[in-house]
C-alpha cells in the first residue's frame, strides 16, 4: 500500500497513465452501457426479450410495490386524500432505476422521505421492474452510459481534439453549474442539508454517476427535476465530472469534519482547541509530586 502517493493529488492533467484511462473507460462501458444496450427498447431484436422482462417486472411489482403504488401503478390514496404511494404511470424507467437502484424503494415503512439504504433487488430484477414501469406510460428512460462518461468530455476548447484540457474545462464548468443549482440544498461539497418540516437533501457523495444523472432527470422524492430542457445533458455530465473530481481530490487542508461548514469548525475549536489548552493549563499549574524527605540545608 502506498501511503505517500506522489500523483494522487493532481487534479486532472496527466492524472492517470493512458492505460488506466482505457481500463476505466472499458469498465464504465461494461458496467453501465452494456446492460442498457441489451435492453434498449429501440432495438427490434430485443422486443421479445423486453416483453418477457415486462412480464417478469410485473410479477415483481405485484409482490413488492403494488401495496403502496396500486395493482397497476395507479397510486394509492389514503382516506385523507394524501398519497400513500404516488402513481407510477408516467415516471419512466429512470425513476425506477434510481429509486430501487439506490435502495430507496421499497421503503421500510411509509414516510415522507425514503432514505438511501441497502439495495434489495438484483440488477436483473431492477431492469425488469424498470421495464414494467416504463411500459405503463411515458417518462425518461435509463440514461445511456455515454451521457455520464466524463472521460469523454467532448471538444470543449474547440481545438479539434478531445484531451485533458477539455476535462479541466468540463470540471470547471460543472463546478459553476453545481454551485448555481445544487449546493443550495446539497451543500458545497455534496454533504446534504436540511429542508422544511424534517425533510432533508441527502448526501450525494459516493453515489453512482448514473444515479446522480437519474436524480437530476427525474427529481426523486421532493427534489425538483432538472430535465434536459432545464439543464442540457452535456451540462449534467459536467456536474457529474465535478462531483467525481471532488470525490477523488484529496483533502488538502486536513480532516474535513463532515464537510458541514462553520458548525463543525466551532465544535473543533471548543472540544479540541480549548479542551487541549485547558488541559495543558491544568498540568502547568498542578502541584508536582512531593518527597517526604527534607533537603539537608547544612549540606547544600
Amino acid at each position: 500500500m502506498r501511503l505517500l502517493n506522489r500523483s494522487a493529488g493532481r487534479l486532472s492533467r496527466h492524472r492517470r497513465g493512458p492505460i488506466a484511462g482505457l481500463v476505466v473507460l472499458l469498465l464504465g462501458l461494461l458496467l453501465t452501457g452494456g446492460l442498457y444496450a441489451a435492453f434498449a427498447p429501440a432495438q427490434a431484436d430485443t422486443d421479445q426479450n423486453n416483453e418477457e422482462l415486462v412480464k417478469e417486472g410485473r410479477e415483481l411489482f405485484l409482490v413488492g410495490c403494488a401495496f403502496c403504488h396500486g395493482q397497476n401503478g395507479e397510486g394509492v390514496l389514503t382516506q385523507g386524500g394524501s398519497q400513500y404511494g404516488p402513481a407510477l404511470t408516467d415516471v419512466g424507467a429512470a425513476a425506477v432505476d434510481f429509486q430501487v437502484g439506490t435502495g430507496r424503494m421499497p421503503m421500510a415503512q411509509p414516510g415522507s422521505q425514503a432514505p438511501r439504504k441497502e439495495v434489495v433487488y438484483t440488477e436483473e430484477e431492477i431492469a425488469a421492474l424498470s421495464a414494467y414501469v416504463a411500459s405503463l406510460g411515458t417518462g425518461p428512460a435509463i440514461p445511456d452510459g455515454g451521457l455520464y462518461d466524463t472521460d469523454n468530455p467532448g471538444d470543449l476548447n474547440g481545438d479539434g481534439k478531445q484531451d485533458e484540457e477539455d476535462k479541466v474545462l468540463l470540471v470547471a464548468r460543472g463546478g459553476q453549474i453545481f454551485l448555481a443549482n445544487c449546493t443550495a440544498c446539497h451543500n458545497f461539497e455534496g454533504s446534504g442539508g436540511a429542508m422544511p418540516r424534517g425533510g432533508y437533501a441527502p448526501k450525494i457523495r459516493g453515489v453512482d454517476s448514473k444515479h446522480i444523472y437519474e436524480a437530476m432527470l427525474t427529481g426523486p422524492q421532493t427534489m425538483d427535476t432538472f430535465s434536459d430542457g432545464n439543464i442540457p445533458p452535456e451540462d449534467k455530465k459536467a456536474v457529474i465530472a465535478y462531483l467525481e473530481t471532488i470525490d477523488k481530490t484529496p483533502s488538502y487542508s486536513g480532516l474535513t469534519l463532515g464537510g458541514l461548514g462553520p458548525v463543525s469548525e466551532g465544535i473543533i475549536v471548543w472540544l479540541v482547541g480549548i479542551g487541549a489548552l485547558v488541559g495543558f493549563a491544568v498540568w502547568i499549574a498542578a502541584h508536582t509530586t512531593r518527597s517526604s524527605k527534607k533537603k539537608d540545608e547544612a549540606a547544600a
Binding site: 501511503l3 505517500l4 502517493n5 506522489r6 500523483s7 494522487a8 493529488g9 493532481r10 487534479l11 492533467r13 484529496p250 483533502s251 488538502y252 487542508s253 486536513g254 480532516l255
Partner: peptide
C-alpha cells in the same frame, strides 16, 4: 503543492 500535491492517506501532505 500546486497542481502536483503530494498526498498522505488522502490528505495534502505539505500542509
Amino acid at each position: 503543492i500546486g497542481d502536483n500535491w503530494h498526498v498522505i492517506a488522502g490528505f495534502g501532505a505539505s500542509t
